[in-house]
Design a protein around this nucleic acid. Sequence first.
DNA 1: GTTCGTCGTTATAACGTTTCACCAGCCTGT
DNA 2: ACAGGCTGGTGAAACGTTATAACGACGAAC
Lengths: 336, 336
Amino acid sequence: MATANVRDVAALAGVSVGTVSNVLNQSKPVAPETAKRVQAAIDKLGFVRNDAARQLRVGQSRTVGIMVLDVSNPFFTDIARGVEDTLTDFNRSLILGNTGESAARELTYLDLFEEQRVAGLLITPVGDVLARLERLRERGSPVVLVDRHENARSFSSVSVDDYRGGQIAAEHLLDTGRTSLAFVGGTRAIVQVAQRAGGAQDAARERDARPVRVLELDSMRAEAGRLGVEQLLALPKAQRPDAVFAANDLIALGALQALTHAGVRVPDDIALIGYDDISFAANAAIPISSIRQPAWEMGRTATELLMAEIEKPGTTDYRHVVFQPELIVRESTAGP
Amino acid sequence: MATANVRDVAALAGVSVGTVSNVLNQSKPVAPETAKRVQAAIDKLGFVRNDAARQLRVGQSRTVGIMVLDVSNPFFTDIARGVEDTLTDFNRSLILGNTGESAARELTYLDLFEEQRVAGLLITPVGDVLARLERLRERGSPVVLVDRHENARSFSSVSVDDYRGGQIAAEHLLDTGRTSLAFVGGTRAIVQVAQRAGGAQDAARERDARPVRVLELDSMRAEAGRLGVEQLLALPKAQRPDAVFAANDLIALGALQALTHAGVRVPDDIALIGYDDISFAANAAIPISSIRQPAWEMGRTATELLMAEIEKPGTTDYRHVVFQPELIVRESTAGP
DNA sequence: GTTCGTCGTTATAACGTTTCACCAGCCTGT
DNA sequence: ACAGGCTGGTGAAACGTTATAACGACGAAC
């Protein structure tokens, strides 16, 4: 049973295909009486528009692509949810690609998105793909960068002030009476990590506190937190910090585990703060303080920037929205 | 700058469009010499196939749809990763929809997928959509059910033996010396929950242990765990259980938090076991024992079943793969 | 020396929409 | 009465691909 097409609908309703299309897209006014007839025919035949044909004609898809670094990190899925929610407001849909931090996968997805002529693309680039993104834009798919703005003034972007986030975290720890801070995070090669660490270090310096000890690890996942804490606990007592600032919440969770395992009390012996404010931080055995990044709102704003470019192509007025991080205080940083 | 199409490529390479298509799809042999010329033209023009046109002609898309219940639950994203990984082996791509347990969203996505003529669909249905799925299949998009097999013998499916999972959990708790079990979970209306609870109850009965106290809550998230534990701790001491079996790991995490907050030691005073074995269970302050569901493998198998139907349409030989759950022992259920 | 196959290639017909230029009425104001 | 403007509708062209029937050239087989 070949599925019904507009022609069948038109025939049954006794109108032309053009009219059916007008009913479908409300592109031109159509008499309520005929509209009703057409609708009846559609229902009767179970007609469903063939999107490929539509797309071919129109030259562009109604779906937007998003490429995230790691779907198993709730921070990114929260962003994606913001995007998805916003997109449904615009009556468009989302196709999600997970790069898993792999430049190869990223290229594969770019190929796919280009073949699909996606209406637009949201991306946190991992490889060196700026040229590729320019091409995509030239061909009618605008691009907005998420959480990466360095050297990319030629694209709109949303990001968070990571330096400020680092400051806030360190200030909070110092405010609550801690004196010796450690930063546990992934490699400084990641801009975000470097910024957060830098903010914390400067804050400590400004308060004439002891310098922040920075532990660089090569992962942004829980094991990094475990490893980091083990290193800290191996230090001579005098050098042991009384507060740990984790580069993200996954690391903080790992840190909490290692501390608990070692019998170190949180927050009594050591305070702990994370970054991102994922739900698992709030739901940890000891609720973990965190620097909240407005993930959902970032997704929404990125989508709005993108839609603006989609609906008014050719603009070169690229906007860069920088969100401010927010301190969320929980039990893990209660005063000593 | 209109993007190049096959005609442009053909012109530049001095061949016909048919030949270009053959080069693109290797559908017919083409002389290596000409193939090289065509490839050169493609590269020079930066030609990228328009997938909409291809799809229109061929009648079917190269992408597969998946609808998951809750992207913020790692169990489902793990399944999705299994699907994605497998699909790239088949050189196809994935479009992911998040229903968030909402029947309305589910319908929206079904419309979308139908318009897109997706090659196939993986779904954990939330609403009553079996008829809709039949129609999708009739129109050329096979459907495989994930983690839902009840009353749906007319679709292939993958699922896990939840009853057995419940048994295993309860037996493990009893084996390690616990005598009074409580089950904390979402509503029994969810088949999985009812099965897991049933398995646990039967296991206790078989061992002549005290009957399992079942706490039904209306959520499958962390707050349910907190609430459940609060209810348990409010009981007179004699009735207080010495082991908690949570319907999933999110609930277990909430439970661990409530227990910690109340100063109840895990596992010394109360043992705790979850379900799904998400990474956050392993990374909790007290590593939480869990019943592992092979999420990635489920995704892979579901995809393979789907691909089989896609590549050989018209078969009515529906298969039902049932995975066995596996006990993962961690600190939270060490003997008292 | 004709016939038959095979290989590589070509031209052309779909696929199902949307858009666009046109048209038939019909009302309205002068 | 007639130009002009709405309103609701028509029909055909175009979007870029793949599939298919047909074809020329060249050997092999008889």
